[in-house]
């Protein structure tokens, strides 16, 4: 019986399976917001920073879809440009902790020993402080500015990635394909980079989705406290802070950016859930 085993089997024909609903819904929301942010000049007709004291606090109209704020700036324009600012800072802010945390977590999990102990103890120390407190303190110490935000967030967020990847690495380490790679004499670097990371990184990617939400909230909070992205760049947090004094008369000044934050958070969460489900299918 030496005929070739028949292949490809039917499994090889990729059947198209509908992506999870959460992925589609979340993706649409986020996609919509991102598109708006990218094409900001096309969907808005005003300059977000131009002050027009002749037309403050106007309600929604054909000229100003969402009205104007206390300095006569068009709210819709500031909202869309605010999305640009906040989203881009948040996306970039998530990259460094993602990269650093993943690598440290993989090393800690795979090598164990003193390196594992060291990394995890540092993590324990950092995590003892509440996230926001630490970020705010760091930004305060470093002086307000976008790079301070990146640094502060990176110092604090890498830990979650490290923990997640470390956990998955501990499991992957004992899989027979890793043993097989060790038996072949592959270097530790090759095993971690080529065999462990590709199989565990999906967890970190999914987490990154919710981490972006965290970062947006942090940026917005910093903006609210006056420690955020420096003016005149529009920022949802700053919008919410300055609109506070008008809460009783023109509640929309604070509420609309707040709603934008919620919607973005919702979209990213759903997208993350969907991604988790999609990756879990394999």
């Amino acid at each position: 019986m030496t005929d070739l085993v028949v292949g490809p089997t039917p499994h090889l024909r990729r059947k198209f399976r509908r992506p999870p609903t959460t992925l589609i819904v979340g993706g649409s929301i986020i996609g919509f917001i991102v598109l708006l942010a990218i094409f900001a000049p096309l969907v808005t007709s005003y300059n977000p920073t131009t002050i027009n004291l002749l037309a403050p606090l106007q309600g929604p109209s054909a000229a100003h879809w969402l009205g104007t704020d206390q300095l006569g700036r068009d709210i819709w324009t500031r909202l869309v440009y605010g999305a640009r600012t906040d989203l881009s800072v948040a996306f970039i802010a998530v990259l460094t902790p993602f990269a650093v945390g993943t690598v440290l977590g993989a090393l800690a999990g795979y090598l164990g020993g003193w390196l594992d102990n060291l990394i995890m103890r540092i993590a324990d120390v950092v995590v003892a402080f509440p996230f926001y407190v630490l970020v705010i303190v760091l930004v305060f110490l470093l002086g307000p500015g976008t790079s301070s935000i990146y640094i502060a967030i990176s110092v604090v967020s890498w830990i979650s990635y490290a923990r997640i990847i470390r956990g998955s690495t501990l499991v992957a380490k004992n899989q027979e394909y890793v043993l097989a790679a060790q038996l072949q004499g592959f270097s530790t670097l090759r095993i971690i980079m080529r065999h462990i990371l590709p199989n565990v990184i999906s967890q970190a990617i999914v987490f990154a989705m919710s981490d972006i939400v965290n970062d947006i909230l942090a940026i917005v909070t910093l903006g609210y406290l006056g420690l955020g992205i420096p003016p005149p760049a529009p920022d949802w947090g700053e919008m919410m802070a300055s609109g506070q004094q008008f809460l009783t008369t023109h509640w929309e000044l604070s509420t609309i950016p707040g709603f934008a934050v919620v919607l973005t958070g919702l979209g990213l969460s759903l997208f993350g859930d969907g991604l988790n489900e999609l990756l879990g299918r394999n």
């Binding site: 085993v5 028949v6 292949g7 490809p8 089997t9 499994h11 090889l12 394999n282």
Partner: peptide, 18 residues
């Protein structure tokens, strides 16, 4: 006794015996 076409496959597309 495996067909060379399976070289392009990923493990999850194959049966236990393969």
């Amino acid at each position: 006794e495996l067909s060379p076409s399976l070289l392009a496959a990923r493990p999850r597309q194959m049966s236990g015996g393969q």
